[in-house]
Simulated scan of single mutants.
Amino acid sequence: MEKRIAGHFIPKNTIIIPNLYGAHHDLEVWDDPYSFKPERFLEGGGGSLRALIPFGGGARLCLGEAVAKMEMFLFTAYLLRDFQFLPASKEEPLPDLRGVASVVLKVKPYTAIAHPREQ
């Protein structure tokens, strides 16, 4: 059986690496994809959760996706509950959210202060 993606013939044993950065920054899918807007992932927030594929897809879909999402939510919630994250200094600009492209998109290094919240 001949395999095609978007009309292009894909020979057997071809390794395909999806462009997750491109998929997550598609102007036809995401409202203002280059801005930090976490509310886009809430219902009616201007994004398409069907187009969000941080855990891959198809036969190589991460089996731990459900556990990872739950743990990531709990870990982030505990951090935000217990700490206020502040820039290291008032003169230093906020981190650049564009990242560094490699096999995966990496955050650029920056310094922040995790100040404990009062209980």
Score class of each variant (00 low, 15 high):
P93A: 11
M1C: 02
A101H: 12
A6L: 15
E2S: 09
I16V: 15
L105T: 13
G7A: 06
K69L: 15
K106W: 13
L94I: 14
A51N: 09
Q84D: 15
P116T: 03
F36L: 08
M1E: 13
L42P: 05
A114H: 13
G64E: 04
G64F: 05
N13W: 14
E91F: 11
I53W: 09
H24V: 04
D96N: 14
G46E: 14
A77I: 02
R117V: 06
L20I: 11
K37H: 11
D32G: 00
E2N: 08
Q84E: 15
L97Q: 12
A51I: 06
K90H: 10
L20N: 13
Y34N: 06
E28T: 14
G47V: 03
L20G: 12
D96E: 15
K106T: 03
T76A: 05
K69Y: 13
P95F: 10
P18G: 03
Y78W: 03
A88V: 15
F36A: 00
S102M: 09
M1S: 13
G47D: 04
K106P: 04
P109R: 02
P18S: 07
L61R: 15
G99W: 10
L27F: 15
L74Q: 09
S89G: 07
P11G: 01
Y78M: 05
V107H: 12
G47M: 04
E118C: 05
G64S: 07
L97Y: 11
E39Q: 12
Q84A: 07
E91R: 11
R81M: 07
G44D: 08
P87L: 05
P54H: 10
M70T: 11
F83H: 09
Q84I: 00
F41M: 02
I5P: 01
I16D: 00
F75K: 00
D26W: 12
T111A: 09
P11I: 03
L49W: 12
L74D: 08
R81P: 01
N13S: 12
E2V: 06
F75E: 04
E2I: 03
S89L: 01
E92I: 14
F36T: 05
Y78R: 13
V107E: 06
M72D: 00
I16A: 05
P11Q: 01
P11W: 05
S48W: 03
L20R: 00
E118P: 04
Q84R: 13
V100G: 02
P18N: 00
W30T: 02
D82C: 12
A23Y: 13
G47E: 04
I5F: 10
P93V: 13
G44Q: 08
E28C: 06
S48K: 12
A6K: 07
P116A: 01
A101L: 13
L79C: 11
G57Y: 12
F83C: 05
P38N: 02
K108H: 04
A112H: 04
L94H: 12
N13G: 03
Y34M: 08
R60P: 12
H8E: 00
D82V: 00
G45W: 09
E28Y: 11
H25M: 08
I113M: 06
K3Q: 10
Y78F: 07
P11H: 03
F9T: 05
D96F: 10
G44K: 08
G99V: 03
L94A: 10
L74H: 12
D31V: 09
